[in-house]
Write a protein that binds this DNA or RNA. Sequence first.
DNA 1: AGTGGCTCAATGGTCCAACCAATTTCTGCA
DNA 2: TGCAGAAATTGGTTGGACCATTGAGCCACT
Lengths: 243, 243
Amino acid sequence: MTDLLPPIQTTARDDAVLKALAGFVRQEALGPGEKLPTERILAERLKVSRNTVREALTRWEGLGLVERRQGSGTYLKAAVSPDMLHMPLTLAGGNDFAGLMATLEIRRALEAEAAALCAIRAGRAELAEIERKLDLMEEAFQTRAGMSSDEDWEFHQAVFRASGNPLFEQIIAAMYEMFHRFWEHPLGVRDFGHASFPYHRTIFERIAAHDPEGARAEALKLIATVEDDLKRGAANLKLSDRR
Amino acid sequence: MTDLLPPIQTTARDDAVLKALAGFVRQEALGPGEKLPTERILAERLKVSRNTVREALTRWEGLGLVERRQGSGTYLKAAVSPDMLHMPLTLAGGNDFAGLMATLEIRRALEAEAAALCAIRAGRAELAEIERKLDLMEEAFQTRAGMSSDEDWEFHQAVFRASGNPLFEQIIAAMYEMFHRFWEHPLGVRDFGHASFPYHRTIFERIAAHDPEGARAEALKLIATVEDDLKRGAANLKLSDRR
DNA sequence: AGTGGCTCAATGGTCCAACCAATTTCTGCA
DNA sequence: TGCAGAAATTGGTTGGACCATTGAGCCACT
């Protein structure tokens, strides 16, 4: 009959702790890297047990908002605000070649869209930042004579950030982690990623020209080269000795 | 020099608990809804304190894997496996219009790609299943004279499943939940979703014809109607009284 | 048969006090 | 001044206790 009778909330201690803590962070204008009060102090101030404080902080730690260092303290890892919306995403499986290809398909969809949105929305500051990362990546490519995962990833991150939608970066970060968890070594393909190199600059050029469809097309080409590399690696691989 | 010397793990109690628990769940083939051992039993069996067990379970609860009911027990809420990857998504200030649009942008990218892949890969069985969901949705539309979220969602799920990539369903499910958590009422737009109705069948037709680009185009049209509805709703809305 | 109220055991939620382990800070000697 | 060792700080863990809620069993009463 009436689904509008939700169960009343009689207690919610740890949620209350987090709410209070979020308010504290906002009031003190704490940013990432800054240290928040010790568990003992929080427990005393909030009039709750240290255990309750710990459960609350464990929640935040699980959400990646906070980092605890034994003997040192608890530090903010990301910006927190009282009106955050959390959506834990747990991805199952993916520890095989099919899993790698699956992450690439997601990347293909998201990177293309992000590049297009970036071409629409990026302002001068964002463009400058992307170009800076691009230069760093190209420099690393020259000196080390090969693709560098770190600089490459930072370039893409800059693009995602400039897309104006934080979800792009977060989701693709998950894909990226999934990808690298399995692929410590490039499956025997020595020049893995080489083919993708030139497309970084072409992507940037299309973004800078505010050409969404052009940027999308270049991003698709980049992902295609990675997929090709991966297939070559799979061909080299006879049997998988993964756990 | 060598980054291949990871710091040895002297302590990782709660992670170890979760690992053991994941193994237990797999061994006992427990599925969603089933009850796991009580905290006291886990503490005794694993030779750790009950507090440690609680911190571990708090992690899983925060990830939405488990639900704790005081006086009753702890129950599985989702399938867990030892090789899961967790990626908590956080949308700062997600309780506003921009947050909704952010989830829609992800959906636009992923639904389009999934529809295209589905057009390539769906076999007879998958096509039949999608058409069945489509018929159910259209029937619900006729009888109830309006879009039904449930049947609509099941249709899309069938498409994602037929895409051959489980990540599509998992990620878009997260977007979907994020979307609906905020939007309990369609912002005053009475016929929300009406415009999207016809595109469900056109998407199916392009998939059945194994026309990837056609399917992608129709999926994009569908998302566009939802975005339009949302913008109309935002126009109706003067101030936000969300918490 | 069924309804309502009662007890009672089981279970998660909270609290406390102590100790362990890693880190940081202080101190005093060379 | 520099640095090694002591001391304080802080998160991690333990064990035990009690509270609050749930659910099952029981029973009187209708």
